[in-house]
Nucleic acid binder design. Structure first.
Length: 518
RNA sequence: GCUCCGGUAGUGUAGACAGGUCAAUCAUUCCGGCCUUUCGAGCCGGUGACUCGGGUUCAAAUCCCGGCCGGAGCACCA
């Protein structure tokens, strides 16, 4: 190729001359013949998709929640990735409760997590709990002891910690396999005070390789298996074994240092290695995304509970009117990013709006309303479409002389979809006069007729601004809405025209809505 | 402190592995305009970025080294 450069250049020059000799019209025509697609409008937008995964045959992934709290958007996204790839490659999904710490797990969370998962439209093919597999872990523990790769350590926690820090091997390491086996049986019964440790590498740079503890005694009752077991496996051991069954592990990078130990444990046990990919934990601007940060806010009553609409817990998002599909799309948008994404609410909102807009009924609402009396107004019933372009049916409004409208300063206004009004008096109440003619460039107002419903709309905002608690993170807008909202069900999301999308949260004398977004 | 990982417009993301077609993609925000019996949606246009310094190379967002900044981990939690 290189040797032909001079010839090629000459050729190019020749062609350019030829083309330049043509008129612009002829050039265009020629181009159109050769590359017709250049002239077609690009109207099909590419849908963003996640990249391919290696070894995408017989994919098995897992959703590994610990039942110790409600899940939030971070878990949701993580579950989404694992679920998404399994479905994309026609694989299987395992829902696996990582419940090997009896002190932390709570019964209620097994169900709440499943509920949230279903709401997220993330399903699974198999469900299990690690607490049901304790005997299996014991079996593998004995296997690893028999291979001389683990030992019983009777030192106290403090010494173990110090040794690990100072890269010093423990004397317990030298115990014979037979003795380790014997002691392990006593350990299972809780008859000795000790732990089982992996014989790793005390000199390793990776601290998690420095003879990590595999099993420890925990006498707390477990919400599922009660007091059946006294000896419980730690995360690395249980997880290493469980993950041998899956082909792809997608998890956030807090686990990045455990790959080495977990792979090592699987190697010792001749178990299969899954493909592991880590991505960064991500945040939502102005909102905590860690259980340990959310919990104090609830305890100190700064937010009202796990389903507070300012929170990005799955329950909070649901109550706010965020759709499960929005979480899916968001997952595709940010991908398995290794940077540390701090996403802005505007991204969530715009995805959600796109999904909501075509399927959401429109109603009239006026916040902070003022009364308007229209002299010689014709009394009538009007029919209005539920949606400007989609066929979502229509609704009827009975109008008379009295209305509720936002405050005005104008001399003439148009009540949207009705008629024009000349303003005569502006006081506590506004008095106007019906105008039967077309007026251009006139302020259009939303209105509610005499028959109305009282409405309260909770408007959530960022909980934190520049790391400081935002005192205005939750506001309430009081107003009136057309009577037709009486037929709405709780949980339904509608659009109050020119105000925004809202989700009906409570239905009593006053209709309480949550403001989703504009 | 130690060990890893990362840094592309205000935000998120593509491009990086296999250097040239990058005068850098798409989305969102913001700003204009059009349309409109919604201030929503839609349509058109605009502003706006390769963290810094060195090196390799004919050629660096891309490869190498260092600084800076950010994150994660350093449990008998997961």
């Amino acid at each position: 190729m290189k040797t032909k450069i001079p010839e090629t250049l000459k050729e190019i020059e020749k062609i350019v001359k030829e083309i330049n000799a043509l008129s612009i019209e002829d050039q265009k025509k020629l181009l159109e013949d050769v590359y017709p697609e250049y002239f077609e409008k690009k109207k099909v937008k590419k849908i963003k998709e996640l990249p391919d995964l290696p070894h995408s045959e017989n994919v098995v992934t897992r959703l590994p929640p610990e039942p110790n709290g409600y899940i939030h958007i971070g878990h949701g996204l993580s579950f989404f990735f694992n679920w998404y790839y399994a479905r994309r490659y026609n694989g299987r999904v395992i829902l696996r409760f990582d419940d090997t710490n009896p002190s932390k797990e709570k019964k209620e969370y097994y169900d709440s997590i499943k509920e949230d998962l279903r709401w997220l439209k993330i399903d699974w093919d198999t469900e299990r709990r690690e607490s049901d597999n304790i005997e299996i872990y014991y079996y593998y523990a004995e296997e690893i002891i028999k291979k001389g790769k683990a030992y019983i350590c009777e030192c106290d926690g403090e010494k173990i910690h110090k040794d690990r820090f100072e890269m010093r091997e423990c004397k317990c390491r030298e115990r014979s396999i037979d003795e380790n086996l014997k002691l392990f049986n006593l350990l299972k019964e809780g008859k000795i005070k000790a732990v089982l440790r992996l014989k790793g590498d005390m000199k390793s740079q990776n601290t998690s390789m420095r003879d990590p503890t595999l099993f420890r005694i925990n006498l707390d009752p477990h919400p599922i298996v009660g007091k059946r077991y006294k000896l419980w496996p730690l995360y690395d051991f249980a997880c290493a074994i469980e993950d041998a069954e899956v082909t792809h592990v997608l998890r956030d990078n807090e686990f990045q240092f455990r790959i080495e130990v977990q792979n090592y444990i699987r190697d010792c046990l001749n178990l299969k290695q899954p493909f592991i990919k880590h991505y960064s934990r991500f945040g939502v601007k102005g909102t905590p995304t860690a259980k340990r940060k959310i919990r104090p806010l609830i305890e100190e009553n700064i937010v009202k509970g796990w389903d507070d609409v300012r929170l990005v817990t799955i329950r909070g998002l649901k109550r706010r009117g965020i759709l499960p599909e929005t979480i899916h799309e968001l997952g595709k948008e940010i991908g398995l990013s290794t940077a540390e994404p701090v996403i802005d609410w505007s991204i969530i909102e715009s995805i959600n709006r796109k999904l909501l807009d075509p399927v959401t009924k429109r109603y009239f609402f006026v916040g902070n309303p003022k009364e308007l009396l229209v002299k010689n107004a014709p009394e009538k019933e009007i029919k209005l479409k539920m949606h400007p372009t989609e066929n979502l049916g229509e609704r009827t409004l009975k109008v008379g002389k009295k209305f509720f409208i936002p405050d005005v300063k104008e001399k003439e206004i148009r009540l949207k979809d009705l008629y024009n009004v000349k303003i005569l008096e502006i006081g506590d109440k506004i008095v106007g006069e019906y105008v039967d003619k077309n007026l251009k460039n006139i302020k259009k107002l939303q209105w509610v007729p005499e028959e109305y419903c009282n409405v309260e709309i909770l408007v959530p905002d960022l909980l934190f601004i520049d790391d400081k608690l935002n005192p205005d993170s939750l506001k309430t807008v009081y107003g009136v809405a057309e009577k037709n909202i009486e037929s709405l069900c709780i949980g339904e999301i509608i659009q109050f025209e020119r105000f925004g999308f809202c989700r009906l949260d409570e239905k009593n004398k006053v209709y309480k809505f949550i403001f989703t977004h504009r």
